[in-house]
Computed example of a mutant assay.
Amino acid sequence: MNKSELIFNKCNKILEIILISIFALLVLDVLFQVFSRYILGTSFTWTEEFARFSLIWMTVLGAAYLNAKKEHLSMDFLYDKLSVTNQKKASILIEIFVFLFALIVMVIGGSNLVYTTLHLGQLSGTLRIPLGYVYAIMPFSGLLIMAFSIYHISNINKINN
């Protein structure tokens, strides 16, 4: 196993731990919300906002994780019909498009969103945390996706060899 594979696997393991932790916190938050509403007879407003932010982080980080594992949704009917050489070319093209999407939409667009919300001082309604911190997951996940695309392109010759 070479150095890039070790880094790739370590990064995926860390992502798994983070995603499991976020999911566990989300479950505990929702259970607490249900318990407080139906057993205690009171509702804490922060639980809904925390659940929403947790779901956002889990979804965007999960997309990066699935991209790393190459388990994202894809339609491979035509891809399977291609020769091995054309599959490699198609894989490179797909990874370039994924890289560009992550760069333009997630990193550049997400960074602009984070900067704008932090600069304007926008706070979440209940938790009163800067929304830029919530949105920071977008450029971070975009950078991860870009790194994973580079990794996949560098390993493209391993397809059906």
Rank of each mutant, 00 (worst) to 15 (best):
P130D: 04
K88G: 03
T126G: 01
F53V: 10
F97A: 15
V107A: 02
K69L: 14
T47K: 07
L61W: 03
A51M: 08
L66V: 12
F99W: 04
G62E: 13
I39N: 04
F148Y: 14
I94F: 10
S21D: 04
T59F: 07
Y151H: 14
N157P: 03
R52G: 14
M138G: 01
K70F: 06
T45K: 13
L127R: 00
M138Y: 07
I150Q: 00
K158M: 06
S54R: 06
I145E: 04
F35S: 09
L144C: 05
S111D: 02
M58R: 06
T117F: 00
N161P: 11
I104Q: 00
Q87D: 10
M138S: 10
S54D: 06
I22W: 06
K81V: 06
G142M: 00
Y135D: 11
S154I: 13
L100G: 07
D80Y: 09
I18V: 15
S154M: 15
C11A: 15
N86T: 08
L66N: 12
W46Q: 11
K158S: 13
Y135F: 15
V60M: 09
Y38M: 03
G110S: 14
W46C: 05
P130W: 02
K70I: 07
E16I: 10
N157Q: 12
N161T: 11
S111H: 03
L66G: 15
I94L: 12
I18T: 12
R128A: 08
E95D: 15
N12G: 13
L144I: 05
Y38N: 07
L25D: 02
Y38D: 04
F97T: 13
L31Q: 04
T116V: 07
F97W: 07
I145M: 14
F44W: 10
Q33D: 05
F35D: 04
L31Y: 05
S36Y: 06
I92D: 02
F101T: 08
A147Q: 01
K69T: 12
D76V: 13
Y151M: 09
S124R: 04
I104K: 00
S43E: 11
Y151P: 03
G125I: 05
Y151F: 15
G41K: 07
N161Q: 12
F8P: 09
N9D: 13
A24W: 04
F32E: 07
L127Y: 01
K88I: 10
K89H: 10
S43W: 00
A68D: 09
S83W: 05
L55Q: 14
G125H: 05
